[in-house]
Design a protein around this nucleic acid. Structure first.
Lengths: 198, 198
DNA sequence: CAGCTGACAGATTTCAATATCTGTCATTCC
DNA sequence: GGAATGACAGATATTGAAATCTGTCAGCTG
């Protein structure tokens, strides 16, 4: 099916793995399937990834990184810290909601993968909170967000908005009124960050 | 095993059901088990609950209501709205964390039950946000919390603190530093509620 | 010789036969 | 007569034997 003449690279294996996951789901996607899709023996896959778990972790990381990269643009964009904070949170919500809504099966698949890969998720969350920290630190510098510890504030904001980005709430993202709820939470948080009484 | 001479009541059945759930877990707890524990035939259980699902829902509701009742006390307690809000949120966290930590298996069991019983959970959440609304409305009346819509603010606060009461985060409640994270989120929210700039 | 293959052992999954459970109801018991 | 029983049909769960998969490695191939 895939051209078997190209050299076998980790990237090509990851590509094929994602395709196999999309087709078969997380429970039935096997290394043999991946090898078959690439027209090679499964032994060759093990040359690039020591175990099936490592392969799944790599493909998970790849998926999470795509989100991080998308959001990174907003961190350094124009606008006040307040605008960027709102834009960043809205983009995070929108991205996740889109992924969950467009291809629910693939999203469910990756949700399973993230559950079995605490490390990759931890790093992803660290990435995202680092981005948030930069925005809030900008606001701390300019006096918009008079917070003593931007990193702690970023963690708090990230956790408080979990309902709008954590996969465990995915099924509620299509309910009517979520957008109002999202706005209400973000407003409350921005107001909290902006409050000078510290 | 249980005295078979007492009259069979819905409450006794619920009691026995909780015990069977504790022993066997959500997957292997059967109506026959419950009947056996009560020393009656399973047909008798069906006289009080139309289906197994109804029985499980009733026992779930009972469990959730125990939490609601505990928290209701704080709503009408002494203290400023700010103090009561913090106390209420802390009690909610503490109660859940205790349940999860003391008897992890029973907690896991009830987590499964709540997942299959959207309705009971919805009502429970409605109960809790109503309690929160009363506290915030008090604050709105006294000027402590100058919010235009206490009910909306209550929903936002409840959702923003999900990480500290939603069972899907239970495994993180024993991590070091959660208390600081809880405090950070609550501080941010209280500051947001207290901010006069509306 | 670097990369790929395919046979292999042990672990895991599938599948179909078997057992148990759910929900009903005619009958029994007090 | 109201409450409980237990046999029953269809649905669901368990089990163990057979099939498949994971991870290794000695040897093949270009």
């Amino acid at each position: 099916m895939a051209p078997p003449t190209e050299t076998l690279t980790a990237e090509r294996i990851l590509e094929a793995t994602e395709e196999v996951l999309r087709r078969h789901g997380p429970a039935k996607a096997t290394v043999v399937d991946v090898a078959r899709a690439l027209g090679v023996s499964h032994g060759s896959v093990y040359r690039h990834f020591r175990t099936k778990a490592a392969l799944r972790e790599a493909v998970t990381k790849r998926w999470l990184d795509r989100t991080s990269e998308k959001l990174a643009v907003i961190v350094t964009a124009d606008g006040t810290p307040g605008e960027r904070l709102r834009a960043w949170l809205a983009a995070l919500f929108e991205t996740k909601r889109h992924k969950a809504g467009d291809d629910p099966e693939l999203f469910a698949t990756y949700t399973v993968l993230t559950e079995e890969n605490g490390t990759a998720v931890g790093e992803h969350i660290a990435d995202l909170t680092a981005q948030l920290t930069r925005i809030i630190a900008d606001g701390a510098g300019s006096g918009t967000f008079p917070v003593p510890d931007p990193a702690a504030a970023a963690r708090a904001v990230f956790q408080a908005t979990g309902r709008f980005h954590d996969p465990c709430y995915a099924r509620e993202w299509k309910a009517p009124g979520v957008d109002e709820e999202f706005t209400a939470v973000v407003d409350l948080l921005v107001r909290g960050l902006s409050s000078p009484s510290r």
